[in-house]
């Protein structure tokens, strides 16, 4: 477990340093995800390894980790009430359009490429 946590933190650290050193506006953790993917592909750890246990634990409670940022809504309750209609419409209509478009395009293309699992 310790090895796994260190690997996750290490990959994030390298990712964060890389985006800052290069000045690219991109989230360090996503770069860290690509690095950790490389580690997993090279090492091919067993299911019992800490390299599997630590990420499994974090992913099981992934939603918990979004809560503190979501509570930030408390600062904007007034603004949200003021602009309720454009915010609600913009958020939900746009979410639905983007979501449905992506799902349909991906589904049709996967069918055309005929590689169903």
């Amino acid at each position: 477990m310790l090895k796994g946590l260190l690997a996750l933190l290490g990959c994030q650290l390298v990712g964060e340093l890389a985006v800052r050193l290069t000045g690219i506006e991109f989230p360090g953790p996503v770069v860290g995800m690509l690095l950790f993917f490389g580690v997993l592909q090279l090492r091919r750890p067993a299911e019992s390894s800490g390299l599997v246990a630590a990420p499994t634990l974090l992913l099981r409670h992934l939603h918990l980790l979004f809560v503190p940022a979501g509570v930030g809504v408390v600062v904007y309750l007034h603004r949200i009430a003021e602009d309720a209609l454009p915010l609600a419409a913009g958020l939900w209509v746009s979410w639905l359009l983007g979501f449905v478009a992506t799902a349909l395009v991906a589904d049709r293309l996967l069918r055309i490429f005929r590689e169903r699992p």
Binding site: G32, F36, Q41, V52, P55, T56, L62, L65, V71
Partner: peptide, 21 residues
Amino acid sequence: GGSYVGFWLGPATVALALPLH
């Protein structure tokens, strides 16, 4: 206190490499 919990969002994003792998 909340930021202690939110901090782990970074390592958890890195952890998403596991299902991808």
